[in-house]
Write a protein that binds this DNA or RNA. Sequence first.
DNA 1: GATGAATGAGCTTTCATTCAT
DNA 2: GATGAATGAAAGCTCATTCAT
Lengths: 190, 190, 190, 190
Amino acid sequence: MKLKDEGKTELIYAAACRLVGRAGIAGLTMATIAREAGLATGTLYTYFPNKEALLRALYRHAKLRTTKALFRDFNEQEPLRLALQKIWLNYLRTRLDSYDESVFVEQYYTSPYMQADEVQMSLDTMAPLFRLFDRGKKGLLLKDLDNTLLAIYLMGPLRELAGLIRLQGGTVPSPLADAAFSLCWDGIRS
Amino acid sequence: MKLKDEGKTELIYAAACRLVGRAGIAGLTMATIAREAGLATGTLYTYFPNKEALLRALYRHAKLRTTKALFRDFNEQEPLRLALQKIWLNYLRTRLDSYDESVFVEQYYTSPYMQADEVQMSLDTMAPLFRLFDRGKKGLLLKDLDNTLLAIYLMGPLRELAGLIRLQGGTVPSPLADAAFSLCWDGIRS
Amino acid sequence: MKLKDEGKTELIYAAACRLVGRAGIAGLTMATIAREAGLATGTLYTYFPNKEALLRALYRHAKLRTTKALFRDFNEQEPLRLALQKIWLNYLRTRLDSYDESVFVEQYYTSPYMQADEVQMSLDTMAPLFRLFDRGKKGLLLKDLDNTLLAIYLMGPLRELAGLIRLQGGTVPSPLADAAFSLCWDGIRS
Amino acid sequence: MKLKDEGKTELIYAAACRLVGRAGIAGLTMATIAREAGLATGTLYTYFPNKEALLRALYRHAKLRTTKALFRDFNEQEPLRLALQKIWLNYLRTRLDSYDESVFVEQYYTSPYMQADEVQMSLDTMAPLFRLFDRGKKGLLLKDLDNTLLAIYLMGPLRELAGLIRLQGGTVPSPLADAAFSLCWDGIRS
DNA sequence: GATGAATGAGCTTTCATTCAT
DNA sequence: GATGAATGAAAGCTCATTCAT
């Protein structure tokens, strides 16, 4: 007997992401996803009840993977600058390695599919970073500013930076990336 | 495309932007735009030959307005920090004042509608800022880094920052905005 | 300007009924209805929000027409037998004249589309007949039985009778029809 | 069509009938039948080559059972009224006991599945009743009318009558049923 | 034989576009 | 020019049927 194959879910996710990376969420159709995944249209409906559910599941999946990657090898005890740089580099690397996934997450966020509970889930993933900020502010290493603001300055430019590195065919770590982190660090340190 | 009534074109632009702000570019239909603008569907086709042309025209329109706003009251001879802060504030203000327009421009950029020549047009608009950077680096006031990198660091976080201020019901200038610009400045100055 | 045409609703009703008469409710598709009505598929959706609504509206429409026909030229003061025969003949005639409509009403009744409120509506239409029965029983002209039972015996066989007459290419009034009504009358009279 | 397990065929028949009783023939799918029967979809195809064959077989099966029930304990030599009442009561009882089956037979009859040879088969089953009518007319006990007409008057109201008894939660025999047969008898007797 | 995942034709519905008024 | 009904291609989804296990 053929059993439902978990790997096929991944196949579908990957196909959908690739297509979003190419033409945006707006151009995404069930038929295209199926063809890209090498499946029949109907097969998608064995794994997801409808298009919205597919996209929603993909968002959760991608968000989870991205978050996990964000804190890879992360040690909360490390010196602050090193710890922050690790997270920062992880984020950059993820955006480059999983470019399609990142584009999808971003576009989903402003699409009509986005729902309130998913906003909260997004915020929760940042908790360890915020604890790091608190420590830094207490030790007078960081400017005494709102955590969200610090996060915005640390991470905000990474989207465009990744785009730039990608355009130049670059990899991480790179001199460009090091210089970029220094900009961030000089901005937020006290 | 007989532009009988210029005001009606603006009406259509505004309606389309409002809808994108609410539910993203993906859910945008000609019928919805028409209803939001208080027109009949067919009327849209008096002003634009088709949907793609409408969006394309709207992008150019919005981009132009945004750019013009970016350099409002800008004087290239002013002290560097003040000049940069003015551009920075203008950008932030525009994102807040014309939130829908900004969201549209952003989503259009990654949509299947985006075309190569429009990318170039986007870059050209930044020329005055880049001249400012060159001056700053020559005078040893700024870190000696790639202009694009400096621009990314200056502008990159503004999208999220605007979102934050918007969420808190804030306006510009505000203490939050001042603190935020200091972060930027400390990051890029030598 | 083209205005929504009420006659087109009738056109759609007629087309749907004709098809149900031919192949039953089960084989009914929006595409077939549209083609039979000489319209594009999409046009159906200017007049009805979806297939279910179309069928529901058609049911109410057909039921109303059928009921109106049932009591055509009906005069509650007439002698009992004549009054009943008129209703009986009207029913038979309607089933023959509007055969498709009748088949539709019947099939809709046992289809998954049928809803509770429509059952009540169906019962209400029979009120004048029931008043006739009451009068007949009071005057000892009819057996003293439940109205519903009398109605069932008067009307129940008409479906099959109509089928039989139709098969024999007959019309109403006919000797067959007269004999048939005598059967009924002899059954219910006291 | 290897009939490995005769009991499973019955299981499928019962499941299909139950579903038709609930929501009509139109909403019937192979997947639903399988689930209701506690089988896998594919298993249905071991017992029937396709959906049409399944329904056709079910029709013959149900028709046969119904017919057999119609003439249960029937003795062609009995007095006419008693013999007719027996058949009449059997029919009523069957409609009540095997309600789903009866609904299925009825709906199948007007569905696109119905085929010409099945109409003939349906008529043939009535032969013993028709012989009874002939005897009655010869003995001047019944009106001298077409057998089909007599049959229609005897059986036609039973569908609705069964519905009524079912609604009132009644059983057979019942005073209602006795009164109802009298209506019939008085109608057809000479 | 039994299973249920996979298939794809065909159904319902949407929507950019046209066109009679 | 403005209107919105009409169009039909294409989208989302269902379901009879097949087939690997």
